[in-house]
Computed example of a mutant assay.
Amino acid sequence: MTPKEQTKLRQVDPTELAHFRRYVQTGQLIKHGSPEMAMSAKMTARANLILAEISTGYHDHQEIQAALSELTCRPVDSTVTVILPFTTDFGANIKFGKHIYVNAGVAMQDQGGITIDDGALIGHHVVLATLNHGLDAAHRHDLIPAPIHICKNAWIGANTTILQGVTVGENSVVAAGAVVTKDVPANTVVAGVPARVIKQIEN
């Protein structure tokens, strides 16, 4: 890819992005062959380009912060730390708060929207997946979006998978290796597959 082609790929039409963000908030299907699916594919290519640049060689905190701001199409606060490697297949539907720590190997599938509030900790190799597919094989390539929300001061343990539509409540802890399929109440510890409440956190 030529430098000119790379520059073009990095550019995002604000109107198209705003439409996509609004569209997925409705929970409607992203249908195979639709303009929304085409936008998703375009943004995936863009994310791959930006992430490839910061996944090779050494990059300091400021360089990573700048890349994340470009990737998400939003300013990323200097108190956000993301340890490489980091992957996402869209990038521009992630919202980071402040004082967030994301450890190595985290993968965010963010088309449906991912919001991470202040003080959250995300462990090694966590997967945040905001998309699903229907059971009907004739429409298996359609995507079903739903947002993930990691609330203030939540701690997501290593190798956890959090599925679409889940809110992890404030101050809660998701134990390592859990698969979270439904909302996690605030001030609780959940564990297992599927994750269940095993403990209340006393403040």
Rank of each mutant, 00 (worst) to 15 (best):
I144K: 08
R22V: 10
T56I: 15
D183H: 13
G123I: 06
H99D: 11
S55Q: 13
T81Y: 15
H99V: 03
S55C: 10
D142F: 07
T2Y: 07
V179R: 08
Q28P: 05
L9M: 00
D117W: 06
F90M: 05
K152H: 09
I83M: 14
M43K: 14
H133Q: 14
M108K: 08
V80S: 02
D110A: 12
I122W: 05
R140L: 14
V82Y: 00
I162V: 10
N132D: 13
D183I: 03
T87M: 12
D136S: 06
V166Q: 01
I201H: 04
K42E: 08
M108Q: 04
T81P: 06
V166R: 00
I100M: 03
T115M: 09
P85V: 13
A47K: 05
R74H: 11
V168S: 02
N103A: 05
K8C: 14
R22W: 13
A176M: 05
T72G: 01
H124Y: 13
M39L: 15
T161S: 07
E5H: 13
A52W: 11
H59F: 13
L51Y: 02
H149Q: 08
R46G: 03
Q65S: 09
R140F: 14
L49K: 05
L163C: 06
S172Q: 02
K31P: 09
D89C: 14
N187F: 08
K199W: 08
H99F: 03
F20E: 13
T44W: 10
V126N: 04
L49D: 02
I64D: 10
I54A: 05
A120W: 04
H59N: 10
Q62P: 06
V179N: 13
L17H: 08
L9P: 00
V189W: 00
P194D: 07
Q164E: 15
I201K: 07
K182A: 08
V193G: 09
A146C: 05
M43T: 05
H139Y: 15
E70V: 04
A67S: 08
P85A: 15
Q25S: 15
A146M: 07
A107P: 11
N171R: 10
G57A: 15
F86P: 02
A175Y: 01
W155H: 12
G113W: 01
A66R: 12
L9H: 01
A38H: 05
V190H: 07
A178H: 11
V184T: 05
Q164F: 12
D77C: 06
S69F: 08
A67V: 13
A175E: 04
L71R: 00
T130Q: 03
A191C: 07
L68Q: 02
H133P: 11
I114T: 06
V173E: 02
H125V: 02
Q109H: 15
A66L: 12
A176D: 02
G192E: 06
F96G: 04
K4A: 12
D136L: 07
G192K: 01
N103L: 08
V76P: 00
A176G: 05
V126K: 05
D77A: 07
G123R: 03
I114A: 09
Q25T: 13
R74A: 12
